[in-house]
Design a protein around this nucleic acid. Structure first.
Length: 215
DNA sequence: GTCCAGTTGC
DNA sequence: GCAACCGGAC
């Protein structure tokens, strides 16, 4: 890893140690909990997910419960956060895990990605947070932060969907240790400081070397 | 109006 | 590859 990347991670982790956010799903490494959390979090502000995550897990404490419950019961719970088609995918995925994987959330990317409603991001999130594997789920926050700081560009009008960009980040800018913490640090930093609108560059401790701030 | 811990199907 | 999906916050 080069010096600039090293400085980025060291500084970011320093910030994270003082400012990290606390969410219930961060206290679990149960792949089922992670799967539920990531399903709820897609295209949805974390604030809103906080309020129903607990209800989801108390209502469906196990994969068996979720697979055996009527879809409408899931819809009722997630209606307040929108994208209710997630209910059908959640139930379908629970059933698949039950019947095809003996009730255990798959450990392989190729299997995860086949589940209904599970794409590249959720598959990597389950592997990283649930199975503590050395991978990074790349979402809109990761893309935004890296593009700004390192001046990465994309031909794609929606950079967050740019697969080439994602592979470049995976290849060149990943930390060597503490994958889980590093991922969370990016999410928190991007959510609190390097926000989509009106980023708080004035209170950013990375602003010295940030290409976005110095452009 | 834009954005959100994205995924899917056209 | 890209729009559509959904509700609420800013």
């Amino acid at each position: 890893m080069n010096k600039a990347t090293d400085f980025f991670w060291v500084t970011l982790m320093k910030w994270f140690n003082k400012n990290q956010r606390s969410y219930p799903w961060r206290f679990s490494d149960d792949p089922y909990h992670i799967l539920i959390a990531e399903f709820l979090l897609q295209q949805t502000h974390v604030r809103k997910v906080e309020s129903i995550y607990h209800l989801m897990l108390t209502t469906f404490p196990t994969i068996e419960k979720l697979a055996g419950s009527p879809e409408s019961k899931v819809v009722d719970i997630i209606t307040p956060i929108g994208l209710t088609y997630r209910a059908e995918r959640l139930k379908k995925t629970a059933q698949t895990i039950l019947t095809s994987y003996n009730g255990k959330v798959p450990v392989y990317y190729d299997e995860l990605i086949k589940l209904s409603g599970v794409g590249d991001y959720i598959a990597n999130a389950v592997l990283c947070y649930g199975y503590l594997q050395r991978t990074i789920p790349i979402d809109t926050n990761v893309i935004r932060l890296f593009c700004r700081y390192f001046g990465l560009t994309s031909d794609n009008p929606r950079p967050r969907t740019d697969k080439l960009l994602a592979s470049r980040i995976r290849e060149h800018f990943l930390p060597e240790l503490q994958y889980k913490e590093a991922n969370l640090a990016v999410l928190d930093f991007a959510g609190l400081i390097c926000t989509a609108n009106r980023p708080k560059c004035f209170e950013c401790n990375l602003n010295d070397q940030c290409l976005y701030n110095n452009k």
